[in-house]
């Protein structure tokens, strides 16, 4: 094969991959503006399904529940993730360190179905013994926080590993007690990692369907659960509208944050170059 042919092959291969990745999404977005009842037949453009979405109380309630659970579970995950990562990073020897280290990462590799099932079994027996907790928001939150903590631990721990340990020593040298070292130096430096851990665990919780299905009770259906159950009954085009809204929101957030961090990095590079020249 000569080089032009190779180039064209490469280009079309790339196009094929992009098509594979994004064509379904484009179709979904396009069909959300379709007037037809049927998801697969195009009639003409309209905002009909967006109006329907606004009046779909069940779906809106599910979205609100999902947002609530995602927000709370992300908070809890980051909180526990921070401390477990800090303990694992700082204290090289303590009883149960190996156990904590492997337990903290187990949910990453364990299939969600197994985690969900085992949590369900446990919660059922706890409820039988104590009469609490009723399955619902709290139990879903518990499951998501469990999974999220594992991810948050990994994110925070990797940041801690690459952080200059001399900074903490310098703080202590300048008169910080251990807790002051943590609040005045370690925590501010971990902020970016905490933020990305929050976003990650938020997303994980927001699109989880497996754990939620095991752990929810009557009246507590998250957005993915509703979409999933409706899909089985035949898709309603308002789901397309909801998906489009979600895609837009996510794209805007991702685009903005990428732009922001890119500008930060560029500014930093310019500052450093400037400082060297002076």
């Amino acid at each position: 094969m000569n080089s032009t042919a190779l180039k064209w092959f490469g280009r079309s291969w790339m196009l094929l991959v992009y098509a594979f990745l994004f064509l379904p999404i484009f179709t979904l977005v396009a069909y959300s503006f379709n007037d037809s009842q049927l998801v697969t037949v195009w009639s003409h453009a309209s905002l009909r399904w967006y109006k329907a979405l606004m009046h779909d109380r069940d779906l809106i309630a599910a979205v609100m529940l999902s947002l609530k659970i995602a927000f709370l579970s992300a908070l809890v995950s980051v909180f526990f993730g921070l401390f477990s990562a800090f303990a694992l990073h700082r204290y090289r020897r303590f009883t149960g360190r190996g156990l904590l280290s492997s337990l903290a990462s187990t949910p990453l590799v364990m299939p969600d179905v197994i985690v969900g099932l085992s949590l369900l079994l446990m919660l059922v027996s706890v409820q039988q013994a104590l009469g609490y907790p009723e399955r619902g928001l709290f139990t879903i939150l518990l499951g998501h926080a469990l999974l999220g903590t594992a991810y948050a631990t990994v994110v925070v721990r990797s940041r801690l590993t690459e952080m200059d340990s001399k900074l903490e020593e310098a703080a202590m040298d300048l008169g910080c007690r251990p807790w002051q070292v943590f609040t005045l130096v370690t925590l501010p430096l971990l902020m970016p990692a905490l933020l990305s851990a929050f976003l990650l665990t938020f997303t994980l919780s927001f699109d989880d369907v497996v754990l939620s299905s095991f752990l929810s009770g009557p009246g507590y259906s998250t957005m993915p659960m509703v979409i999933f159950s409706r899909a089985r009954l035949g898709l309603n085009p308002s789901i397309n509208a909801l998906a489009t809204v979600t895609i837009v929101v996510v794209s805007v957030v991702v685009f903005a944050s990428t732009l922001y961090s890119l500008r930060q990095a560029r500014q930093r590079k310019r500052d450093m170059a400037l400082a060297q020249r002076e």
């Binding site: 001399k166 900074l167 020593e169 040298d173 910080c176």
Partner: peptide, 20 residues
């Protein structure tokens, strides 16, 4: 005596300036 109570201060090799 712990480091934070010593009237001793150190200049670190990589300076360890607080970046924030």
């Amino acid at each position: 005596l712990p480091a934070y109570q010593r009237p001793i201060n150190m200049m670190f090799q990589s300076y360890a300036l607080f970046p924030h």
